[in-house]
Write a protein that binds this DNA or RNA. Structure first.
Lengths: 124, 124
DNA sequence: TTCAATGTTCAATAATTATTGAACTTATCA
DNA sequence: TGATAAGTTCAATAATTATTGAACATTGAA
């Protein structure tokens, strides 16, 4: 029982829920980083964002983003790969995500993606 | 001492605060109604929205919208006239408000503006 | 098989936000 | 002047959200 993660269908994505989910600095930063550095989905795991909070807190915030329909979470081995649901959001709320991302790009990134904990560094 | 109401300057309007303020059904409905029926600012007083909650609750929510920089509140006699800060929001977050309003237009209005309490009806 | 890495869940707590009712202010109207 | 209408403020409470740490599950790798 792979306990599939819930994701709302595109037409179920609700504006108030989306706004609530994005009205939080941590989550706004997460989607902003996903937009900037998430071209290659392989890198975007939960622990990529550890500088934003504890494991548990991130699990919570990422769950919020997922349930609101903002990101897609794909289990892969022991990791979970995150990606923005750009197309779904665009078709549901045209122009919305782009305007958010453009504006958020001016925000200070309170997390430097380069400080990603590379403890057991098996990079590449 | 007219106790002038605080309004953030255009450049002080912050995205997270705006998103937080709009991530609430009541407040989303308020700005949606302002956009739809607020062409003539004279009609848009706090009590126009009484069907959305108590006087006190509205005072609270309208304060949130004002402090976030989303609406402008102009005292006029014993009333307060509300208007959307369309231009300020557009220059700060291009496309954002329009995308919100377009999407919110599909939301059910849990308040019918026609049910506006017209007790002491001195209309026009 | 054992270990380490990645995440989740749960219960407890902290912190923030929203709602209420009562009392109050200010302005208008008769 | 006195009454009413429109809103605010305050303190109390309710409700929601966020954070923590401990325990757990799952996968991949030595």
């Amino acid at each position: 029982m792979t306990n599939a993660l819930y994701h709302p269908a595109p037409e179920e994505i609700a504006l108030p829920a989306v706004l609530t989910a994005l009205g939080d600095e941590t989550r706004l930063t997460i989607i902003s980083m996903l937009a900037r550095f998430g071209e290659d989905e392989r890198n975007m795991t939960c622990s990529y964002f550890l500088s934003l909070g504890s494991k548990t807190a991130l699990s919570y915030h990422i769950g919020k983003l997922r349930e609101a329909g903002i990101i897609y979470v794909r289990p892969e081995g022991t990791k979970r790969l995150l990606s923005l649901r750009r197309a779904d959001l665009e078709s549901r709320f045209p122009g919305f995500l782009d305007s958010i991302l453009a504006s958020a790009a001016q925000l200070p990134l309170n997390a430097d993606p380069c400080e990603y904990p590379e403890k057991s560094g098996v990079q590449s």
